[in-house]
Design a protein around this nucleic acid. Structure first.
Lengths: 223, 223
DNA sequence: CGCCTTACTGTACGATCGTTCAGTAAGCAT
DNA sequence: ATGCTTACTGAACGATCGTACAGTAAGGCG
């Protein structure tokens, strides 16, 4: 092909530490999707990333550090995605929440592999202080996003029967629970039905005003 | 200490296979509570049960079989417990559901270790056909219990805005999600608040009749 | 072009994994 | 008591785990 002499192809390519670290984080999540809990070994991760085993410990002091940063990245991607979907929706709080539900219960978020990743991370939670720390921070992000949208909804539709805090907790629980159930058995219900259940929940947060206001808005449960 | 001659203490006690199997299942769950995912090794389990390593493979063909049976036992215990709590409650569907919620969000079910056990089992789901099989059967048990109580409620309080199927899915999702959130961070809300959220969900399943009927019944959210 | 930094490789190590299996002994039956 | 069945033990196997480390070479710079 090329000149036979000096231009040997290099055996590997150097990258900036921050780029390589990100590549290793991506490989961690991909390997986790493919092999489940067993995908979290340095050998599987390095094979997925196309690098040697030792490179992981060159960029991360311990394997657990890489896993915790992968968890952080995974969280940020989800929250960033659904937040973006919500913000580019029409200007009413209800429309933003609807877009938020649709993004939550659509690919790439509603994916059996993705939810496997969540469950494996959760299974590490109790015995890994690093995972706990990351969870605390990103869970707050998620709750704050939900809470801010509910606050806007309350401003439009009237007072809730619950505190904002409790309404956000309930909605998050409903979303997480439906997520989990769909992952464990996608045949039980369709994503559109999950969205309908979430919308019903926020419909009933208000007492009377909400009920009247959304008579026409809420009826089409199909997307 | 004792007589020096014939009455030597036996080095171990034989047990009936079915009893020993149950003891190993109990040890599996206990080890899982203690050590998380790492507790699912034959060495930890056998140490917990006070037997040798080889005994596990004497009673179970593979480790995965023991784990799947432990999952089944754990599921049955939960469903049996909350069903019993529901059935010994007063005769109205609402009272049974209330007792069901209380049992769900009280010890021994509402326990951080217990919920760790769930999450670890779920994390095995995708790559273990045996776990999938057990889940399919026990999940149906759980859903059927919820659905039958909701059916009774519908007979008392009027038609739901959702199908029975969807109402049961939504309630189960709410319960599981609150369970999960409380496990991951018990400081975010109190169990009584979780119960209030669940009761609010079933209150709003009916359209108008329910709302009027339970004005006095629903107010005390504290237990 | 030769030097220097350091990203990167890959073997080695000890620990632990699940499973096998030959041997031991508990405890009922004769 | 003696024998028989089999629950049970525990060493051994090969595989895989996370980490350490000595050596290699990529690629920018003087």
């Amino acid at each position: 092909m090329s000149a036979p002499l000096s231009p040997r192809k290099p055996r590997f390519e150097r990258q900036l530490p921050q780029e390589r670290r990100q590549a290793l984080i991506d490989a961690t999540i991909e390997s986790l999707k493919r092999y489940g809990h067993e995908g979290l070994s340095v050998r599987r991760i390095s094979a997925q990333a196309g690098v040697s085993i030792g490179l992981i410990n060159h960029h991360f002091p311990k394997k657990d550090t890489l896993i915790a940063q992968a968890y952080r990245h995974f969280n940020s991607q989800l929250v960033g995605g659904v937040r973006a979907a919500a913000l580019q929706a029409p200007a009413t709080a209800r429309a933003r929440l609807r877009a938020f539900f649709r993004a939550t219960f659509s690919p790439p978020n509603l994916d059996r592999d993705v939810l496997t990743v969540w469950v494996v991370f959760w299974s590490l939670y109790r015995h890994s202080p690093e995972i706990q720390k990351v969870h605390g921070e990103t869970y707050r992000e998620h709750i704050d996003l939900v809470r801010s949208m509910l606050a806007d909804l309350a401003a439009e539709a009237g007072k809730f029967r619950f505190s904002l805090r409790l309404a956000a907790i309930g909605l998050t629980a409903m979303i997480d629970g439906l997520w989990l159930e769909w992952c464990l058995d996608p045949g039980n219900f369709r994503p559109a039905e999950a969205i309908a259940l979430c919308e019903s929940w926020i419909d009933n947060l208000g007492v009377a005003i909400t009920h009247a206001e959304n008579a026409a808005d809420t009826l089409p449960t199909a997307r």
